[in-house]
Design a protein around this nucleic acid. Structure first.
Length: 417
DNA sequence: TCTGGGGTCCTAGGACCC
DNA sequence: TCTGGGGTCCTAGGACCC
């Protein structure tokens, strides 16, 4: 049996945790750059504020109903997430951390009768020790556990749902609510007369294989109770690492864009080093605002690096060369990003056969290790590369409503009077 | 009139997830 | 005025190999 534990309105719940005065009040959390709504408390949902809607479209509504609006605070959410996951692991060692607010647990079906009390206990422990409300769905497969979680949250409105008789529920679940069915496939399935989850479960494998692909055919098997997706307890190293962000203000000149790109490169390399990887491929993309009616330009270019690397300096140097090819004056740029690809473990790093000069190779490893160590100990960007810019930076993202880092910074500890 | 069989690797694009 | 960021997997088609 699988259990899916999913925090309720996770980011909104995190914000409320240190603001007990906001109990029962509507809260929303915005994406980076205060762009879109990415989390809503139940009270905010009740006001009709949709998920992923641009903030400017609901600003007036928020003002009217005194909705409390927060910029996203990933330091806080990440820390609280880790606490929740630690408690879950104590309750069940077979755990797959699926996202910042979700985990699959594989539980022994010998204790079938005990599953509901066990799940209720997990939920209560998390509520007591961290203060975050979670819902737990239990089923024979991961997909059924997801369905059970959905039922717990939206139909039963209880913390726990054990789906022991799925056929009694599946016909009530719209097909596009099923995990793995997005907007496009939902529409296509409906056009084929497959409206609910039970109908999808009844659709023959070969039919789905022919009209869609193997992924959807497996989803149907999972709905029938045949497990196709295993628990993935070990998190695999990333195959690609992306770092990109929209600018706080539109950018026209090369220099600030290059500084933003350098900052993204440094962050991508830092992530790469934490997984002890080296990248062979580097991709840079530049974009104008796709929602604007101004002239659009979306150039991008990838190169194979001459030698696999995790050195921020080398990646920045090549990325800036690529940017030099992509950049054209006369556009209002909205976003720049970098992707590191073809990533391998550093221990398998392949040196060049022909080139004897490998700049930066001697001091690279200790220097980058020291950079990471200092920034981990004394805080982000305590030391950084000059390419990232030292003046006031207009490309930096907007984040005007961010709460304190209550749990990770001594200066931000809550004060009680 | 007649032109093999069986593979791998790479890339772009499309779908999905949170 | 203002529209996020970071991933994975699958498929088809092209190029190449013997």
């Amino acid at each position: 049996m699988f259990a899916l534990v999913d925090a309720n309105n996770f980011y909104a719940s995190c914000e409320r945790l240190f603001r007990p005065d906001l109990a029962g009040k509507p809260i929303i959390v915005l994406s980076n750059n205060d762009g879109c709504v990415v989390a809503r408390s139940n009270e905010a949902k009740a006001l009709g504020i949709d998920m992923a809607i641009p903030y400017f479209k609901v600003k007036q509504c928020c003002y009217q109903h005194q909705v409390h609006v927060f910029s996203s605070n990933y330091t806080l959410y990440g820390d609280l997430s880790a606490r929740v996951m630690t408690l879950l692991e104590m309750g069940c060692p077979n755990i797959e951390v699926y996202s910042i607010d979700e985990a699959f647990l594989q539980v022994d079906d010998q204790s079938f009768d005990g599953l509901i009390p066990w799940a209720e206990k997990q939920q209560q422990i998390i509520k007591q020790h961290v203060g975050i409300p979670v819902s737990i769905g239990i089923g024979k497969t991961k997909t059924l556990a997801k369905v059970a979680n959905h039922i717990a949250k939206t139909i039963l409105r209880q913390p726990v749902c054990l789906l022991d008789q799925p056929e009694q529920w599946l016909s009530r679940i719209p097909v596009d609510e099923v995990w793995g069915i997005g907007k496009r496939w939902g529409r296509k399935l409906q056009a084929l007369g497959i409206i609910n989850a039970q109908q999808l479960a009844n659709t023959p494998y070969d039919y789905l294989r022919k009209h869609f692909n193997v992924v959807l055919a497996r989803t149907a098997l999972e709905l029938q109770g045949q497990s196709c997706l295993a628990l993935e307890a070990m998190s695999e190293p990333k195959k690609n690492i992306v770092a990109s962000k929209s600018f706080g203000q539109k950018q026209i000149d090369f220099t600030p864009i290059a500084q933003a790109l350098s900052t993204h490169c440094a962050r991508a390399c830092e992530k790469l080093r934490t997984q002890s990887g080296v990248a062979n491929y580097l991709h840079v993309s530049l974009k104008t605002n796709r929602f604007s009616d101004q002239l659009q330009y979306h150039p991008h270019m990838g190169i194979k690096l001459p030698i696999a690397t995790d050195d921020s300096r080398m990646v920045i140097a090549y990325a800036k060369k690529i940017l030099g090819c992509l950049y054209k004056p006369g556009f209002k740029y909205h976003k720049v990003g970098v992707m590191l690809g073809d990533i391998h473990p550093r221990v398998f790093k392949q040196n060049s056969l022909l080139s004897s000069s490998q700049p930066m190779s001697q001091d690279s490893e200790p220097l980058m290790a020291m950079l990471d160590q200092i920034n981990r100990r004394y805080g982000r960007h305590q030391i950084y590369l000059a390419a990232m810019g030292m003046q006031k930076q207009t490309w930096k993202m907007q984040s005007n409503r961010k709460s304190p880092a209550y749990t990770t910074c001594w200066q931000s500890l809550a004060k009680v009077y």
